[in-house]
Amino acid sequence: MSMTVARRPHRLLTMAPAVLALGALFVIPAAPAVQKGDDFLTPETTGVLNLEPGECFTDPEYSPAAGEDIVLYTTCDQHADNQSYGFVHADDGPYDRVALADFGWTSCKRGFVNYWPGAAGAELDYYPILPTAETWADGDRDIMCVVYDPRGELGGSMLPRAS
């Protein structure tokens, strides 16, 4: 004896729109690209003056122990947000923030294009760390050039290996 059984529509198919809608609530959007300018860090940010060319460091974070924002040296393969790739020296004279920023961007761009030709706008970007009026008055004429990945942490040293 054969029996005919009425089949109900597949429950998963009837639930699909609800599941898709629910799933959309849990999609984590990609983090927006970060743009760092010449005012992102200054030599007055604790830790900046301890950095040498080629060294990696964190973005500034508030330290309860220090009571201020600090940057920390880190190895380039462990939570590094930035890497110093050189210094340029500004000429003496009166402090002029606009002229100093122009000099810093132009000078750091030469090093950036040299080390990472074609990288601008792709995976890497750069910014200068400029003297402030206060550090300038104390004789600071050095501008640090820094490379970073606008999408997040660096995946190791960004400096090309010598061949």
Rank of each mutant, 00 (worst) to 15 (best):
T14D: 04
L13K: 07
D149L: 13
L154E: 04
Y62P: 01
D91F: 05
H10Y: 06
A16D: 03
R11F: 11
R8P: 00
K36I: 15
L154A: 10
E153P: 01
L49K: 15
T106I: 11
G139S: 02
S157N: 09
L100V: 04
S63D: 15
P17D: 02
L20G: 04
A122S: 14
I129D: 04
E52T: 08
T75F: 07
E61N: 02
A119V: 08
H79D: 14
G152K: 14
H89T: 13
L100A: 10
S157R: 09
P128I: 10
L130D: 06
R161F: 11
D77Y: 02
V146D: 07
M158V: 15
E61Q: 12
Y115D: 10
D81A: 14
L159A: 12
R141S: 00
V71N: 03
E134Y: 00
T46C: 01
A80G: 10
G86Q: 05
P43G: 03
C145R: 13
A90I: 13
Y148H: 12
V19E: 01
T135S: 15
Y115N: 11
Y73Q: 10
G23N: 09
Y115M: 12
M144N: 05
D140M: 02
P53K: 04
A6R: 13
V147C: 08
I143C: 07
P128H: 04
H10T: 09
K109Q: 13
S63I: 14
A133F: 01
H10P: 02
Y115G: 00
P29T: 04
D77H: 08
N50K: 12
A80R: 09
S2K: 15
P64A: 14
V48N: 07
E55H: 05
T4F: 07
R97E: 13
V48C: 03
H10R: 12
G156D: 11
D149Q: 14
G86E: 07
Y127D: 08
L12I: 03
A21D: 03
M144V: 05
G139Q: 03
P94Y: 01
V27E: 04
V71T: 06
G155T: 15
R141P: 00
P94W: 06
A90L: 15
A30F: 06
R97Q: 15
C76W: 08
A99V: 05
L154R: 05
R141N: 01
A137W: 00
D92G: 06
E61F: 13
G156V: 08
R97V: 03
G156M: 06
P60L: 09
V147Y: 08
P60N: 03
G118F: 11
S163Q: 14
D142P: 00
G93N: 11
R110D: 06
D149Y: 05
P17W: 03
A24D: 01
P29K: 10
P53L: 07
L154V: 10
V146A: 06
I28D: 07
Y127R: 11
T75R: 08
L49H: 01
D138N: 08
E44Y: 03
D91L: 08
F87I: 09
V71Y: 02
P60W: 00
H79P: 00
G111W: 10
L100G: 05
T45G: 05
D38W: 09
P160V: 10
Q35G: 03
L13T: 09
A90T: 04
A162V: 14
Q35I: 12
E123F: 12
E52W: 03
P128L: 06
V19Y: 06
R8F: 10
S163D: 13
L51R: 07
Y127F: 15
D149W: 05
D69S: 12
T132H: 04
G37D: 15
P32V: 14
L12P: 01
